[in-house]
Design a protein around this nucleic acid. Structure first.
Lengths: 227, 227
DNA sequence: ACCGTCCTTGACGGAACCCTGACGCACCCG
DNA sequence: CGGGTGCGTCAGGGTTCCGTCAAGGACGGT
């Protein structure tokens, strides 16, 4: 299932896009300003972003930079402005495509398909990664965690944090990097978030949460996941 | 150096593109029909293809399919036709972008940069530099130190000091430089810090801490790490 | 409009860490 | 032979950092 994040401040455009995308079995999130767009992108990990440049709270190019700070997700820019300068700016900031309003829905969808297609891993990526420990199993592709034969229920943030740690299995991940990957690029010092969510992960997955064997704290530096 | 293959049957457009691209230090090949385009692509392996759909010998979409049969090289389509149908066809056949003539050179170049950029290999290279001695192992990427099969726990300052020494393996590092790299630029004379933390490193890593073989003191000058 | 889930935020005890000063030792030089 | 300098060691105290809990608020679904 492909997940799309639609960012636009005009409700009718958002609605049109959402309806068309859902009809084609995309999973769609919507945001109406830059701040929530960045937050949603961090929380939901869309496979492609459709971004209107004319947002109420911040410049669209800033949103692109905010995304590009930590992800290579395809960004498809919508804009009412035809000026060549605008396009160049957006594309060089990291956008993948630029469509001017008014746009044809067919064309937009085709461009969206193209963006998603080329983002797919080249040669059968090892994305079906399953990591097992003595006590639980993490299926990165299926986004599922199992323990003692039963599925463990994780909230989006918990899963996101777990995913970053597991993808860097064995390596230390600095707290700043964790915060930026999970909560977005504007975070970096709010270490209390990490404390809270690491505690939840340990409570749900560790055999003895007060003496963790897999989610290891490196004081002053970050955390490390160990099989 | 980025290599571009330009495919168009109109000589003036080819010339304009070639001049503009060469001026920006791209390496450019040109073809005037589909057959030679496919041949040139196979022979020269361009990093991006700029393809006009209106070719004399074959349908542009066929050219796209011909390329997609064996390569994922980015394809940027040029076309005089604005019809939504054409665009959808080309994009779904495997094109990455679609620009209608007449086009602005700035915009085309920006789209070309975008296409090349996202084709670049993903993550910054896995910098898994590992340094081994007879007694312990330092993994700079994972920020991990192992000794006799077990992980050794280092505090942030200990790790930082070790990292500077290891990255200058074999070379003498002056105490002033060590202090400034680990404790910050305003330090430089507090050599007692060094004494304390060198002692901790030796205690944790040397077989015989009182007769160090790897963390060597150069009296009056600094310290040196030796495998 | 209500309810449940999830995220955020603040507070607090305890642990880990960093700095500091004191002391002993080896070496060099007067 | 005695004083000085630089280095290694140790232990205590202050500070930062972490784990835990609970309450408040935002959001979505019924």
């Amino acid at each position: 299932m492909t997940r799309v994040l639609v960012v636009d401040d005009e409700p009718q455009i958002v609605r049109a896009l959402v309806i068309n995308l859902r009809a084609r079995t995309y999973e769609v999130d919507a945001a109406h300003d830059g701040a929530s767009a960045l937050r949603l992108a961090a929380a939901r990990h869309p496979d492609v972003v459709v971004l209107d440049l004319g947002l109420p709270d911040m410049d669209g190019v800033e949103v692109i930079r905010g995304l590009r700070g930590w992800t290579r997700v395809p960004i498809l820019v919508l804009s009412a402005r035809h000026s060549s300068d605008e396009k160049v700016q957006a594309l060089d900031a990291g956008a993948d495509d630029y469509v001017t309003k008014p746009f044809g829905m067919d064309e937009l969808l085709a461009r969206l398909r193209a963006a998603v297609r080329r983002a797919e891993p080249a040669g059968g990526g090892a994305d079906d990664m399953i990591v097992e420990t003595g006590e639980f199993t993490v299926d990165l592709a299926a986004k599922k965690v199992g323990r003692a034969g039963k599925d463990v229920r994780l909230t989006p943030t918990e899963w996101h944090l777990l995913e970053v740690l597991v993808r860097n299995s064995g390596r230390l991940v600095g707290q700043k990097r964790l915060l930026q990957e999970v909560w977005g690029p504007s975070y970096g010092t709010e270490t209390n978030y990490l404390r809270v969510y690491m505690a939840q992960l340990r409570r749900k997955l560790e055999a003895d949460p007060s003496h963790p064997k897999h989610f290891i704290t490196e004081p002053g530096m970050g955390y490390r996941f160990e099989k």
